[in-house]
Write a protein that binds this DNA or RNA. Structure first.
Lengths: 263, 263
DNA sequence: GAGTGGTCTAGACCACTGA
DNA sequence: CAGTGGTCTAGACCACTCT
């Protein structure tokens, strides 16, 4: 038996590097406390102050040390668990996931489409006009076949070379779509500016051989393997706001994404 | 003005069908209350008792009516918001998403791989042996190149016809992989039985032309467009447990999934 | 048995929305 | 303005894991 009366130094196998990390919470900030904490925890993990091994002292101590209630600390921790950075084990503790794969890097191509404006990628609008909706677009948008919609065809390039050919159908009168702004700003930012809040999207990814026309536009050979993607996007009321049928050069593009498996 | 003193009938524009729905909460059950409530809400939505329009009375009333605290009710509602079934609007209320797309149907092919055992799909193991890890597999699994791993090659069929050719590398000594159980049970179930808890996976989907060998196995023509998918799966400690490099017949398979866009 | 996360309560105040 | 969700507190008991 140890002659120590107090709690021993406690550098257990799964030692808690968190003790040395300082957190600065600003109660006057409009940013929620749980969110401030989550951000600082995430930064500490990324920056390496919190090593993958095992860690993160128990929630009761942590909340006492931070001057927060346990539910608030839990809310912060939970958000990182949802991001896949932490794992909770009942009776054990909360650990930082080993993970080579730090950044979840968000999800697949929608993210690209959301962000690809201004910087490297450029977009050329090949077509932007009203059209009687074809069967697939009408079905996806919940309209009668033949309803007038706006059809866009855009050629997306990175490093000056084509990557994707995007055909998009937008419901009538949803928003103005001046070609110039489409090329400079991107469809999703225009929607956001118009007060349309994206909520979810349904995607289907497949493959097929390039047609002669696609091959010419994309600088591929006819019959080359292309990635295809059909997507219907919905706003926060569940209303479809876009249906797209796109092809990507398989030689220059792939869909990368991380899944979290939920029990 | 109405001569009524009490609260009027209150069949406002966004009327609350929830008032007529009964909830049965069992406090003796080991199932958490918030989870019971979430399930019953989800069932009510799916079954149509809660119509897409607008709905769901405020959380304070709801918790009072159910005899629960507001945080508990919030936890239930939040889980459905996370699933994309409900939308909260501050100052307005919580609404059922219109959504054509009811079932989120989980995510892409991993789900298929998890579930495709026993029923329609069958799996034939073409190869199951130790092998010095090639560069890509070693990198993905965090091993030195040439480390001995187990390589699996499996041909997956539905309706008696081939759909996919799966090449999988499993770290050494992770678990036993008898061919017969692989064909009857599936890799993921075997992992689960071995106490391996899947946590996340990184996937990359692309396309390319079929080689002669692939074409022969998959009953396609050489040069046909195939979907390709590379996946590294991790368990809950962040340890890589599988690296796969797979090809799917584009004529018979596509990756379908739903994204939720988070602000 | 000690320590952990999982769940739950009964309040409180604030920020935003809409009439 | 009243009503809504968003955040936060300070406790409580339970279920599980590990030693």
């Amino acid at each position: 038996m140890s002659p120590v009366h107090r709690t021993p130094p406690r550098t257990a196998p799964g030692d808690r590097a968190l003790d040395s990390v300082m957190f600065a919470l600003d109660r006057t900030s409009p940013v929620p406390l749980y969110y401030q904490l989550a951000q600082q925890l995430e930064a500490a993990i990324e920056h390496g102050a919190l090593t993958p091994g095992n860690l993160l002292g128990n929630e009761v101590d942590l909340s006492a040390r931070l001057g927060l209630s346990r539910p608030t600390v839990r809310q912060a921790v939970q958000s990182l668990v949802d991001k896949g950075l932490l794992v909770r084990r009942r009776g054990v503790g909360t650990q930082v996931v080993h993970s080579q794969v730090k950044r979840p890097l968000e999800l697949s191509s929608l993210y690209d489409d959301l962000e690809s404006a201004g910087q490297g990628p450029t977009t050329r609008v090949l077509r932007n006009e009203p059209l009687a909706a074809p069967a697939d677009a009408a079905a996806a948008l919940g309209l009668a076949e033949g309803t007038e919609v706006t059809v866009l065809e855009r050629l997306r390039c990175t490093h000056g070379r084509p990557v994707a050919l995007l055909r998009t159908y937008v419901p009538p009168a949803l928003l103005e779509l001046p070609t110039q702004r489409l090329e400079s700003t991107g469809l999703y930012r225009m929607m956001r500016s118009a007060g349309i809040v994206l909520h979810s999207a349904r995607q289907s990814v497949g493959a097929r051989a390039a047609t002669a026309e696609e091959a010419a536009l994309l600088d591929e050979k006819e019959g080359a393997a292309l990635l295809t993607m059909r997507r219907t996007a919905y706003d926060d009321t569940g209303r479809p706001v876009e249906y797209g049928s796109h092809v990507y050069r398989a030689s220059r593009y792939a869909f990368d994404f991380q899944l979290l498996i939920r029990p």
